[in-house]
Simulated assay, not measured.
Amino acid sequence: MHVRIQSTATPKTPCPGILHEYAERLVAFEYSSSTNHTKPHTLLFIAGLGDGLGTVDYLTDIVAALEDTEWSVFSPILSSAYGGWGMSGLGKDIDEIAQCVQYIERYKHASIADTAAGPGKIVIMGHSTGSQDVMQYISAPNPRHPHSRPKLDRAPPIVRPQVDGAIMQAPVSDRQAIQSVLKEGSDRHSPEDMQKIYDDAVARARRHTFEEYDGLDTIIPLPVTASIGYPETTAVSSRRFLSLASPDSPGAPGEDDLFSSDLGDERLKKTFGMVHGRGVLRSSLLVLYSGKDHSVPPWVEKGVLLWRWRRVTDSERVYWHDQSGIIPGASHTLSGPHQVEQRRVLVHKVTRFLSDIELPPE
């Protein structure tokens, strides 16, 4: 299906492309100005918490930079897109990403006449919580172990196809972002009131995670989640709230708690340290951290954190790409006229990475 979406970037311009149904009731948008040429390589972009199609402004910069290359850009709309994140989870995300990768492999193979050069490359890129998805995709058991979840949500996990590269942009800790909000308070609540609201929400979620014989998720009251900083109209299940808040961390982190600065090496070995053993990532990993990310508390030492992640990831084989690192002055989303230079740096690093992925292995 050929459609045009309206970009949220300024100035707003139409983005031509193709809408693909990659699984039942799941679609992905392929940014494409030409319907006559199917590019062999794919950048699969996974947006963050609350995001959807066209909501991450810098993606249009990446699409423009790749216009004259052999890379096309796909943006899947997962079940967790927009407000769906509150009732979803990383496990379901990576299963749907795996379905999208499978679809792209079939689609590219059927659409490209010259297959003598072999299959095209596929790179997955995540923004914010999309980075959690990327890390889970390349490090979790394959197929993943089903996590404790309602009986109505226990479809068999999917075997994830290999990908040639992975990019994590703004991989931040939701738990530490919540802690920062609690420490600072808000216009309506003092830090003491915020802490009480949070403690009550955690206690309630632990007592009543599921209802109806574990068949249904329970919902944290909207005034509670709104007070903590989540959108007033987004329903958040007790299960997802406990995963994001991860109140037993750092000793027993929740599924979403992958990037907190206080996680010990043993925890990192089970995430970053499993990239090599899973065999899902064929080539390289690019990690791009924003220098002025408002979601990162000021006490986090960004350089030290990235060094720890890299040391664990590369313990058996070098995966980290040399373009990885902190983008000075970059905000969480790199949006707005004051982030033009930061977006330029981001695009340069991403295109350099993709060019290297194209090269044959040494």
Rank of each mutant, 00 (worst) to 15 (best):
P157V: 08
V275Q: 04
T10D: 08
P16R: 05
D322W: 13
R344T: 15
H109N: 11
H2A: 11
E341T: 14
D265Q: 10
A47D: 08
V56E: 12
W85M: 05
R343A: 14
A117I: 08
S283L: 01
A98Y: 01
L26H: 10
Y22V: 12
T333R: 09
Q179T: 10
L346H: 09
D133E: 06
D164H: 14
F353I: 08
H147Y: 06
K196G: 00
N36L: 15
G215L: 12
T60V: 12
G120D: 00
V296L: 04
I197Q: 07
C15Q: 10
L263M: 05
P171F: 04
V172N: 10
H127R: 13
I77R: 15
R343M: 11
S173D: 02
P231T: 07
V56R: 10
P223C: 08
V347R: 01
P141K: 02
Y319P: 08
Y319Q: 04
L288E: 02
E362W: 15
W309P: 05
D61P: 12
D68F: 01
G83T: 12
D95T: 12
K92P: 00
L268F: 05
I5A: 04
A28K: 05
D217N: 14
I77S: 08
P247H: 02
L334Q: 05
M135S: 03
S88W: 01
